[in-house]
């Protein structure tokens, strides 16, 4: 059985945030909640990297382990989903999650914390497929339409890929082979020019500087 996974190729991500916007739009995610975020490491420095992060649908999910009302379940293809009717909004899952994926609406009376919301891998929730309740609580069920998560499908540089772990890991392995296993140092002034091996890709290659 396939195991559904996301993979963000940090050497390709350009921090355009299109995945964040696509997710919000497709699932009509309320204001103040981002199911996906782009994290930038060493912003503005040479060698800066961006990585698009959402729920990673962990195989042994810490959120699932700590939930006091056991509202999580794992689908046959490895997606970690939850039932909002059972959630009590305690926030334990947020503390347990290494990626900060669980989000909480705060638009109830007195800013009270609402029911947990997170990435569903565009697989809806435990309501009838394509029903109004499912869309309202969990967002679009693209998987039931034979489509993959929109964030990954519309990533312009194909940095974010999603689907059967076998397929995406093969794709990534092919890319690494083509890059000859070398990272792009073209923007990194800290690397000695003499010891630098020119990669067959990257900004310098794109702008034909090398």
């Amino acid at each position: 059985m396939a195991r559904m996974k996301f993979l963000c190729d940090v050497d390709r991500c350009t921090e355009c945030n299109a995945c964040v916007t696509a997710c919000k739009n497709e699932n009509e995610v309320p204001w103040g909640i981002n199911r996906r975020r782009v994290v930038v490491i060493d912003d503005g420095q040479p060698g800066e990297k961006s990585v698009s992060v959402a729920c990673m649908h962990c195989t042994d999910a810490p959120c699932q382990a700590v939930c006091p009302v056991d509202c999580f379940y794992t689908t046959e293809d490895g997606l970690v989903l939850h039932d909002k009717d059972l959630c009590i909004g305690c926030g334990y899952c947020l503390y347990a999650c290494p990626f900060g994926a669980p989000q909480f609406p705060k638009d109830d009376l007195f800013g009270e914390r609402g029911k947990m919301d997170k990435c569903t891998f565009c697989a809806g929730g435990p309501e009838q497929d394509h029903s109004e309740e499912e869309f309202e609580k969990y967002g679009r069920n693209r998987l039931a339409e034979g489509k993959l998560p929109l964030c990954a499908e519309m990533c312009s540089s194909k940095a974010l890929i999603a689907g059967d772990a076998d397929i995406i890991s093969n794709l990534y392995r092919d890319r690494i082979t083509r890059r000859a296993g070398r990272p792009d140092y073209s923007q990194d002034q800290s690397t000695e020019q003499s010891s630098k091996q020119e990669p067959p890709w990257g900004w310098d290659t794109a702008y034909q500087k090398s």
Binding site: D85, P126, A144, K147, G163
Partner: peptide, 27 residues
């Protein structure tokens, strides 16, 4: 887990095949 049961319209096998085909098209 005592929440609603997530019933899919398609069997896991059919879903898997369709999604693999989709991945090959979009990626």
């Amino acid at each position: 887990y005592k929440g609603n049961v997530d019933v899919h319209k398609e069997s896991a096998q059919i879903r898997e095949q369709r999604l693999q085909l989709r991945a090959r098209q979009v990626f």
